[in-house]
Design a protein around this nucleic acid. Structure first.
Lengths: 206, 206
DNA sequence: GTCTATAACGTGATAGAC
DNA sequence: GTCTATCACGTTATAGAC
């Protein structure tokens, strides 16, 4: 465990995984060369196959962990027992924005790779259950019964929320171009949206 | 011009372009094999290079035309002189939804390829001017002065609009999974959003 | 213009020395 | 465990016959 560390912690295996994560998320599976990963990790190409057998196996691990992390982030807020819908929306927007400011390429990565769907990871993840049986959805259905929201289908609500937070990161090159924004300005832009999005979603405190 | 047509119009050159468009938009540049395009077009692989010199050149043509078409669709509504903001929003949502129901993969295609940005097509397109100097943006700024909208920056308004329409298509596999939706059900879901989105954007008639 | 055959190259993976 | 050298294969592109 305590060998001589280059500058981080991490065994060789972990350094490869971190490098793979960075390159895959930036370039996607098809755009990534195993040589890129090896270089990023500062190791030899052969070591990649020594530890992970193949590019595909390494990718599946990264993809699985990334999606799982993303969903757990959602589940954490969606299933809080003691907060109102409005509070959950604010928390969601806040925590997702912070997450995506750190790793802005995750949404486009996930959507792109799901489109390809070589190995069918979508089937393996309980994404349907996780969202639709969450506390948040139950609260939303309750709110609909009480006439607090106009739309019956909670999926529209979820869609709106995810769209308003994630889309700007997916379209960031276009938005930066349109608004003549530098990276720090784009960051400010996204921070502003923490106030704007809950207002748009428009829920009365319950 | 009037040769014997297989089932469509189109010279060989156009059939290759149409095939290329279909395959590129579905699989992206890196995911596409020139053999796929040749097969889809029903021609020999060598013909592709005969007409277009290289995969990259063919791709650039497709990419350019696709982005241009997308922007013209926007420009058309954004620059109407005689309609209110609210009417423009309704038209935008309607026409974009119809467009994307026909070609659902366009948004993810555009965003993915812009991320890679091999040839710098983003620089070549006047996307900044087109949007920010549109009639719609001018109307929005006027509305802000009159206290009709709360947010000063029109880019948030544009972002919200594009996000709410385009994101569901980008995330469609996830949404279908979550809502247990077949393709026809997803179509219905998107048609419902034609009513929901203008309500969310929430502008008074002006 | 359209085809077949093949060259040229890039990439994933492995053999084998250390 | 880690490296160098190399194989094996898929893919783009082209030469040349028709």
């Amino acid at each position: 465990m305590a060998k001589e560390n280059l500058k981080l912690d991490s065994t060789t295996e972990e350094r490869i995984k971190e490098a793979a994560r960075a390159v895959f998320i930036k370039k996607g599976f098809n755009g990534t060369r195993t040589r890129d990963i090896a270089e990023e990790a500062g190791i030899n190409l052969a070591l990649l196959n020594y530890y992970f057998r193949s590019k595909e196996r390494l990718f599946e691990i990264i993809m699985f962990e990334t999606m799982l992390g993303f969903m757990q982030q959602m589940a954490l807020v969606f299933n809080e027992e003691s907060t109102s819908i409005k509070q959950k929306v604010e928390k969601m927007v806040d925590s997702f924005t912070e997450l995506l400011l750190r790793e802005p390429n995750i949404p486009l990565f996930i959507m792109s790779e799901i489109r390809n769907d070589a190995t069918g990871f979508l089937e393996k993840l309980p994404v349907a259950n996780m969202v639709m049986s969450s506390v948040l959805v139950k609260q939303y259905q309750e709110a609909y019964k009480n006439g607090k929201v106009k739309e019956a289908n909670p999926l529209h609500f979820i869609t709106n929320l995810m769209a308003l937070v994630q889309f700007p990161f997916i379209a960031s090159p276009l938005l930066k171009k349109m608004g003549n924004m530098s990276d720090p300005m784009f960051r400010e832009f996204m921070l502003e949206r923490k106030q704007i999005i809950p207002r748009l979603i428009g829920l009365s405190d319950k």
